[in-house]
Amino acid sequence: MEKKNSILKIENLSVSYGPIKALKNIDLYINEGEFVSLIGANGAGKTTLLKAVLGINTIERGNIFFLGKDITRKPTNVIVSSGLSLIPEGHIIFSSMSVLENLQLGAYQSLATFKENLEKIFEYFPILQKRSNQIAGTLSGGEQQMLSMGRALMSKPKLILVDEPSLGLAPKIVLDIFNILIELNKEGYTILLSEQNAKKALESSSRCYVMKTGEIAMSGPSLDLMNNPQIQQAYLGGC
């Protein structure tokens, strides 16, 4: 159920790319401490939605509230510094800088607690500590994804948006990353996960939205959706 002071609230959001309507009247909310997933096929509008929340896409209609404040059409850096972090698809990192510098860039909003945060991150991702002076471009795909996550966590966000963390990674590493996400959620981070791998997403999240051609087709607790025959047929490979 939606609590009174939900952390993120999206009302009636529409986004267009020229004549193409990418998002149509999206309504979505996330309560504090929740792990919400967003599933749907390629091109359903998941990434568009996350980018709209971050202020990267121009919003046509609707409102986005974060911690009770209207952040619609605010510049990205303002949104990020208010405590919202996106871990982008395809591990976008600063590949010619060192791992440590990447983390420093993520932390510039909260420099005071930099050391503390850094230790925390190294706890989650021990591999990053080992490679902290290495140039980020030389890391493997999984390590880059971890760096991307670590960088987002450095700013101590109140809500983390994760876009397709499993994209192009080996199954073993995907498992690791999902475990870390669950771990983070247990530690109190609120997470919105957008994922094509519906099974994994439903397993790890508590609540789920299903997107289809720019609209929310269905939503509810993950367990219910997992048992829903329609969902099973469409996304989980059931028959």
């Binding site: 990267i56 850096n77 990020v80 982008p88 976008i92 600063f94 860039l105 510039y108 909003q109």
Partner: peptide, 22 residues
């Protein structure tokens, strides 16, 4: 930090934006 911002924007504008660099 300012210098790091410069290099970050130079390298990857989108990522710099996502990190919250103005």
């Amino acid at each position: 930090n300012q210098g790091r911002f410069f290099r970050a924007i130079a390298e990857n504008r989108l990522a710099a934006e996502l990190v919250g660099i103005p």
